[in-house]
Design a binder for these strands. Sequence first.
DNA 1: TTGTAGGCGTTATCAG
DNA 2: CTGATAACGCCTACAA
Lengths: 326, 326
Amino acid sequence: MMTIKDVAKIAGVSVATVSRVLNESGYVNIDTRKKVEAAIKEMNYTPNEVARSLYKRKSKLIGLLLPDITNPFFPQLARGIEDRMQEHGYRIIFGNSDENEEKELDYIQTFIQNNVIGMISSTNFPEKDIYSNLKIPVVFLDRTSNDSPSVYADGRKGGRLAAQEIIARGSTKITVMQGPAHIKPAQDRFQGAIEVLNEMGITYQVIQTSSFSHTEAEQWAVELFDKYIDTDGVIASNDIVATAVIHEAHRLGKRVPQDLQIIGFDDIPLSSLLSPSLSTIRQPAHDMGREAAGLLIKLIEQDKVEDKIIQLPVSFVERETTRRKE
Amino acid sequence: MMTIKDVAKIAGVSVATVSRVLNESGYVNIDTRKKVEAAIKEMNYTPNEVARSLYKRKSKLIGLLLPDITNPFFPQLARGIEDRMQEHGYRIIFGNSDENEEKELDYIQTFIQNNVIGMISSTNFPEKDIYSNLKIPVVFLDRTSNDSPSVYADGRKGGRLAAQEIIARGSTKITVMQGPAHIKPAQDRFQGAIEVLNEMGITYQVIQTSSFSHTEAEQWAVELFDKYIDTDGVIASNDIVATAVIHEAHRLGKRVPQDLQIIGFDDIPLSSLLSPSLSTIRQPAHDMGREAAGLLIKLIEQDKVEDKIIQLPVSFVERETTRRKE
DNA sequence: TTGTAGGCGTTATCAG
DNA sequence: CTGATAACGCCTACAA
């Protein structure tokens, strides 16, 4: 491994000078600069980030904590984050928390031990001391807490939209699937939906779902029709559950959207490929990731940041699981 | 930030002693050990991994390079890797390569600058010098190169299976979708399938697909029926394309599986939720991730590793896009 | 404009 | 059994 010393030696200067050209700091004669640059290129030298990090007490690493990368919504966030971070020279240490506080703590711990310079987290525990006591900037993604920096989509609005659209298209016996109680955005959606339902005086039923996992989605779909066989409109807690509902409706011989309309949430990439393709409330996941990254970078690089809360708009994506508007 | 010095001070010993108890190295009197441990707990001290890494010239970080986390196959690999690594105290620095050599190089570069102790890569360029010149262990995942350590599923076998099963279920005008030319496993599948087709003397057509992206999947599905409207069996290059094919078949009024059978590849989590649910060749993605992590850990921690090539079995998952065997 | 030297937090060597 | 102390590779006063 090359070190700054080696470069200094073959450039015939001191390490301090090499460091100066490396960091474009302080004065350095144009000619010696050239010599140094030549040496660097020749030896194909790149500075050891670990040593840098030790000295500066901070690295170019940022910590990313997501509940479960296996849920199709999160890779999109991750991708948005990574794209933006990468443009700015930051790298990502990644962990799945499984919404498990202990695991989360453990990761935060090691993030800090590795001098991460900032962190993005989709945690269910944003209020915890761990976060408020952190000495590095944190951005909550798809989550919020008071006035902490955060990026999220307007879940309540999304829920309202879903209800409005499904009502406008003629469903009258609506079932709302309520996502996991401990996940804030899931509850926002739910609240938004029932708000509208109540305002319009439409009767509805609720199905509780306690997670967003693929494996359990099927069960809830079954439970749904088991309890409410004659429902004619389902507002699902996300696209995965919605997919399972389509599947189950098919199995029961229900026609979608004629007998039953379904609206999902998220607009994961596969939604448009389903048969029928899924009408859904779109969250701009990739953008959310980019924004979160952008916000964190600001927090890191600027001392004063005005807009620390970024709310992105959701929108109704009309596809084939809803009828044409009357 | 606490340092080992602070601990030493309040424990009334030298840093060397603290270091010894931290690393369980060398002798240390039981009583002083207790004092030190008490101090550590009291101050809630955790060692600075960066300093450790600098001294040891290697960290507890491993680099992970995946083509695109947005493709549902990869999160599963990632998850498998992470789970296993996490159990062993390793953390992951992650990057999307987009199958772009330059990006890949860039990441490898920074991985090394960060003293990663090993690397897992799903690269299309395993033969490149960058890899062979690396001084840290590398495991290729879902990829291979000569006798480099690697973990992958038996793609050729998978292709053969797909062809055998679809033939056994009565398709006679088969279309094989050939995945991206530069992706080895995609070609293996293709080869396996046409091998069987040729052996059995079945005529078939080929549709080229140049990527695995969601956005383009739809186009190939359209192209497929555009060119071969009366095909009665499709062997898709992966589950995403297969999903698009189901969708397009629906649109054209074809009944699946009566008029048209479809077999996918991968068995991504959503496959079972589709309508009809997708028959596919399953790759044990999560296990592949775990195995790759396990192999890398061995490579790191042991000096001699016997089985450096791990091939995992694929299997046919019978669902609703194929008919019952006759 | 350039070089010397001290320090970032740990570990390991070597006396004691 | 314990304690100085020299690295690890880099950056930044401070001198020259």
